[in-house]
Amino acid sequence: MAIIQFLGSTAGRWVRVIAGVILVVLAVILGGWWLLLAALGAVFIAAGTFDFCLLAPLVGKPLKGSAFRKTFTS
């Protein structure tokens, strides 16, 4: 649960965006089938940029980042 709380935080958003960029860069460098990593990287970048946590619904929390963070402050 702590990792999901971290991923929903502002720092977690930055980690997701940075991890996504790294995956996209690796995919472009390696080419071929490794380009599938770029799709995963794009998901990470979108999740961080648009503030949603894909793992939150697995623990019964809202997908939207702002609503997700409110469940831990109240």
Results as ranks from 00 to 15, higher is better:
Ser9Val: 09
Ala2Thr: 11
Leu23Gly: 05
Leu40Ala: 08
Asp51Gly: 07
Ala2Glu: 13
Phe50Trp: 13
Leu55Ala: 12
Asp51Leu: 07
Phe6Ala: 09
Arg16Cys: 03
Lys61Thr: 05
Arg69Met: 10
Phe52Trp: 11
Ala42Gly: 13
Val28Gln: 06
Phe72Ser: 04
Leu26Phe: 15
Leu55Ser: 11
Leu58Tyr: 06
Ala47Pro: 00
Pro62Asp: 07
Leu35Trp: 09
Phe50Leu: 09
Ala47Asn: 01
Val17Tyr: 01
Ile45Gln: 01
Gly65Glu: 04
Leu40Gly: 04
Ala11Pro: 09
Gly12Cys: 08
Ile18Lys: 03
Lys70Gln: 14
Ile45Ser: 01
Trp14Cys: 03
Gly48Val: 04
Leu63Ser: 01
Leu26Tyr: 10
Leu58Pro: 04
Thr10Asn: 12
Met1Asp: 14
Ser74Ile: 10
Phe44Tyr: 06
Ala56Gly: 09
Leu58Ala: 15
Val15Ala: 13
Ala27Ile: 05
Leu23Arg: 01
Ile22Ser: 10
Val59Lys: 10
Phe44Ala: 00
Ala67Ser: 13
Gly32Phe: 12
Val24Gly: 00
Gly41Glu: 03
Gly8Ile: 00
Leu7Val: 03
Gly60Met: 13
Gly41Asn: 06
Val43Trp: 02
Val28Glu: 06
Ile3Gln: 12
Lys64Arg: 13
Ser74Cys: 08
Thr10Cys: 06
Val21Met: 09
Arg13His: 03
Leu58Thr: 10
Ala67Trp: 06
Gly48Tyr: 03
Thr71Arg: 10
Ala67Asp: 15
Ser66Glu: 14
Ile22Trp: 09
Trp34Thr: 14
Val25Asn: 06
Gly12Asp: 04
Pro57Asn: 08
Ile3Ser: 11
Leu55Ile: 14
Ala39Gln: 02
Val21Glu: 05
Ile18Val: 12
Trp14His: 08
Asp51His: 11
Leu54Val: 12
Lys64Gln: 14
Thr73Phe: 08
Gly32Gln: 12
Leu7Tyr: 04
Thr49Ile: 10
Ala38Leu: 08
Leu36Ile: 04
Gly48Ser: 11
Val24Ser: 00
Phe6His: 09
Leu7Cys: 07
Phe72Ala: 08
Ala67Leu: 14
Trp14Ile: 06
Gly65Asn: 13
Val15Ile: 14
Phe44His: 00
Val24Asn: 00
Val28Arg: 02
Thr49Trp: 09
Leu40Cys: 04
Cys53Glu: 03
Trp34Leu: 12
Leu23Ile: 02
Trp33Leu: 15
Val17Arg: 01
Trp34Met: 15
Thr10Arg: 13
Ala42Asp: 01
Val28Ile: 15
Leu26Arg: 07
Val17Asn: 00
Val24Phe: 00
Trp33Gln: 12
Gly41Gln: 05
Ile22Asp: 07
Ile29Pro: 07
Met1Val: 14
Val24Tyr: 00
Gly65Met: 07
Leu35Met: 15
Val28Leu: 14
Ala11Asn: 13
Phe68Thr: 01
Arg16Pro: 02
Phe72Asp: 04
Ala42Asn: 01
Ala56Tyr: 05
Ile29Tyr: 11
Val59Cys: 08
Thr71Leu: 14
Gly32Trp: 12
Ala11Ser: 12
Thr10Phe: 11
Ile4Arg: 12
Gly12Ala: 08
Ile3Trp: 12
Leu58Trp: 07
Ala19Arg: 02
Arg13Met: 07
Val59Tyr: 12
Arg69Lys: 09
Phe50Glu: 01
Phe6Arg: 08
Ala39Arg: 00
Ala2Arg: 15
